[in-house]
């Protein structure tokens, strides 16, 4: 993010004849904003994204996947402020101190905004991530992603929510897009859209922060006094996504707007082409738990079998 010169005034305040000092500079939007106007800019941008991709309306019941991190809490805060019916869903992954701390932060936040937080314990449902990691031959994050998606989907239906919202931000999406493009992973690329429609047992999933950068999300949390988990999950170390993010931020520094363009032009120009060639495979029902899957047995039930064998 390029520098804000001393004494720069907020672009919106200036237009209104007020004199508030800018505290945030958004070079890719050519905006310098004061605290108040940054917060309203952020919420408007989220609302615009929700409408642009027809994610949901005020009538929908939304379940926000809350991790205790800045993105999910900022998203939840913004959706509630915008008047949407959004409750939280937290999965206690059983990752030692990290899970305890993030759960506490998620709980305190839900009390602060006075919305329900549903909590599911992975230890009770299946096994904590560190145990799953010992029997799985995939990286911890990949197994973790699978179980989070599974329980999120299952509980959303059980609890009567028709939308699942996740806090993925622009930097997350751009890093994944970059990685998938680097590997020409077409099967992943054709699913990289901020809305995954509901179908045969899958609840509709949306990413309302897909045009918000990571820094914007951290700033929004800061300005709203949102306390979030500041340290990383112990399993996240060395994730390639962090490398991509740093690399892309160097590009962005020199050429503001690169990330947003890479992402939005993909959605506009490339995604429709990939979509056209998609052979639509219908999901089946897992013969054990009944959740949607493309195999006979879903990956969480397979994990459970493997856990049983391991003990």
């Amino acid at each position: 993010m390029a520098k804000l010169k001393k004494g720069t005034r907020c672009s919106i305040c200036k237009a209104k004849g007020e004199k508030e000092k800018a505290v945030v500079f958004l070079p890719h939007h050519r905006l310098a904003l004061c605290r108040k106007h940054f917060v309203s800019w952020f919420e408007k941008r989220v609302e615009k994204t929700v409408k642009e991709f027809r994610m949901f309306s005020k009538k929908d019941r939304i379940l926000v996947a809350v991790s205790g991190g800045k993105d999910s809490l900022s998203l939840w805060n913004a959706l509630v402020n915008l008047g949407y019916q959004a409750d939280g869903f937290y999965i206690d992954l059983g990752i030692d101190q990290y899970s305890q701390d993030s759960k506490q932060l998620a709980l305190s936040f839900s009390e602060k905004i006075d919305r329900s937080l549903h909590i599911v314990s992975l230890k009770e449902e299946l096994a904590p991530i560190p145990v799953i990691d010992t029997v799985s031959n995939r990286p911890a994050c990949s197994a973790c992603g699978t179980v989070k998606r599974y329980y999120m989907n299952r509980y959303a239906k059980e609890l009567g929510y028709n939308i699942i919202a996740t806090g993925h931000n622009l930097d997350d999406e751009v890093a994944v897009l970059f990685g998938n493009t680097l590997h020409w992973d077409v099967n992943y690329l054709k699913r990289q859209y901020p809305v995954l429609e509901e179908e045969d047992g899958f609840v509709r999933k949306v990413k309302p922060l897909c045009k918000i950068t990571e820094k914007e999300s951290a700033l929004y949390a800061f300005f709203n006094g949102i306390e979030y988990i500041e340290y990383e999950c112990p399993f996240s170390e060395g994730a390639s996504s962090i490398e991509y993010k740093e690399l892309l931020s160097r590009l962005e520094e020199k050429h503001p707007g690169t990330k947003l363009q890479f992402y939005t032009n993909f959605l506009k120009n490339m995604y429709p082409i990939l979509k056209e060639h998609e052979k639509k495979e219908k999901p089946k029902k897992c013969i054990i738990c009944g959740e949607p899957t493309y195999a006979d047995i879903c990956s969480v039930c397979k994990m459970r079998e493997r856990l049983k064998k391991a003990v």
Binding site: K3, V23, C141, E214, K215, K245
Partner: peptide, 30 residues
Amino acid sequence: FVVKNGEIAQEDETVSPQDEIKVVNAISGG
């Protein structure tokens, strides 16, 4: 970004040992 005594500090803003300084890194992995 840097938070100085509870406010965002611009890059050219000076800081002293008396200030309460927090550094926020927005990048997260996983």
